[in-house]
Amino acid sequence: MSVGVVVVSHSRALADAAVELARQMLPGRELAIEVAAGMDDGSLGTDAVAVSEAITAADSGEGVVVLMDLGSAVLSAETALELLDDDVSDRVTLSAAPLVEGLVGAVVVAAGGATRDQVAREAERGLAPKQAQLG
């Protein structure tokens, strides 16, 4: 089983597009990527309960790395950990990585069977290729 990945965003469209971009890196490979984005009524926003449910859905027992956009996405992800049982929240890493770059890096190594710490580290260095290119 692989480490799961959760995307938390204010916008369902933004999250779905980021996941689509990332899944392009996984041709023919399976990976649990769950999205918690936007409000029930379609407006922009984040929902800590939805984040906790997405984490539960993405977790196969190997843990979960959570990528977020900004502001309340971060606060909702932190709040979601409080809503989960400790044995689940203990195997969740909230990543400070930039959402798109971090997600692409994370899913590639997660699908390759990396550990949660390895997935989180790969996400964190998501800006490195862009920085190297731009100098």
């Binding site: 929902d47 409080e82 809503l83």
Partner: peptide, 21 residues
């Protein structure tokens, strides 16, 4: 608190939600 963390949407959801929880 549980309703606010789910339904507000912005940063005030987790903040007011945590206050009440």
């Amino acid at each position: 608190g549980a309703t606010l963390v789910s339904k507000v949407g912005g940063a005030s959801g987790p903040l007011y939600g945590t206050l009440f929880l």
